[in-house]
Amino acid sequence: MSEENEFECRVFPSAADDVEHAKRVECSKQLMASSAFRLAYDDKAFVLRDEMRPVRLLLELSKTELILNDHNINNTVVMFGSARMLRPKKAKKQLFEAKQLLAQQPSNPDFKRQYKQAKIRQQQTDYYIQARALAKIITEQSMLGDIPNLYVITGGGPGIMEAANRGANDAKGKSVGLNIILPEEQQPNPYITPELCFRFHYFAMRKMHFLLRAKALVVFPGGFGTLDELFETLTLVQTKKIKPMPILLFGKAYWQRLLNWNVLTEEGMINEDDLNYFSYVESVNQAWEIIEKHVKGLRKLHRDI
């Protein structure tokens, strides 16, 4: 060991060193089997106790934070949307199969319903294509160095999340996936950068990490989960808990059918100015222009300061 490395050595053994040392301690099997005798941080049963929930929350916050810092992931574009949207080829196949079944039994109500749903899924593939294209542009442009490095971050699952991670992968760039453990397992999509694919137990910690580095939020059509994430962000901006950022709702027709914002203003539940916290976008280029303008403005502001 060089003199310089020797100078930088820890005075105390690391936690990992002590875990290994504890395994070599000579004592009775009865003691070794005792939970009390195990190091607290190496005692799974202890860490998983209900009373240790605050510690587990901190672990979920800290693990992701440290790894993202290690990879210099400082600026992100969050992309939300339904996990149910299909890849174009799969949607086309499902529509073909549903059409065949309906042709065989035109009066079958189940086949009518399947065909109707398959047609909707086929139409929704436009959102998959747009999410993939936007993520590719974001990644490509940030890799050129004209703007601060932006990394696409998603919930890590299928549908729109897959499309966004896939677009970043198309550009040969990194992207982040924040998976959540659910009773019906959400499988991570194969396009996330492996060393940036995380798993969460707590929705709260996952949603915090979506926004900690966010410079823009792009929301494609989705269900309860997408709405939850959208409204949490709007609430944080409205209450000035986070700084304003572009919140882009992709597909004006969908969002206006789903949400009657005018009811909120007419009933005095929000101010009319609150409707300025988000914008509708219809194209990849339109979304990118807004994001690019915002991040360039942030860079100029930082330089001026």
Rank of each mutant, 00 (worst) to 15 (best):
A83M: 00
K90T: 15
L102P: 03
V55M: 02
V55Y: 03
A91I: 09
Q114K: 09
K63D: 05
Y128Q: 06
P54A: 08
F80T: 05
E65P: 04
L86A: 14
A98P: 00
Q123W: 11
L68T: 09
R84L: 01
T125I: 06
E60P: 02
A118S: 06
S62A: 14
A83L: 06
K90I: 07
R87N: 09
A98C: 04
K93A: 15
A91V: 07
V47A: 10
Q104P: 03
S107Y: 03
L68R: 08
L86G: 06
R56F: 06
Y128E: 09
M52R: 15
V47Q: 03
K116C: 03
Q105A: 15
Q94F: 12
D110T: 04
L48W: 10
K99R: 01
L68W: 08
K112L: 00
L101Q: 11
T76Q: 14
P88D: 14
L57W: 02
D110S: 05
K116T: 02
T76V: 13
N108M: 06
L58W: 13
T76D: 14
T76C: 12
A103C: 01
G81L: 02
E65Y: 12
Q94S: 12
L48H: 08
A91M: 08
P109M: 07
Y115A: 13
K93M: 14
M85W: 05
L66D: 00
K119F: 01
S107D: 11
L68D: 08
L101T: 09
N69A: 13
S107W: 07
K90W: 04
I67A: 12
P106M: 10
D50T: 11
L57D: 03
A98K: 02
K112V: 02
P109I: 07
S62H: 07
K90E: 15
R49K: 15
S62V: 11
R56Y: 11
Q122C: 13
D110G: 05
F80V: 05
Q124Y: 13
S62R: 09
E51D: 05
Q122I: 09
A103V: 00
I67C: 11
P106I: 10
K92A: 05
D50M: 13
E60N: 01
E65A: 13
E97S: 14
K89P: 01
H71C: 10
N69H: 14
K99D: 05
S82W: 00
Q124S: 14
N72I: 11
P54Y: 10
Q123S: 15
K92N: 04
E97I: 11
P88V: 13
D50W: 12
A98H: 02
R84A: 00
K99H: 13
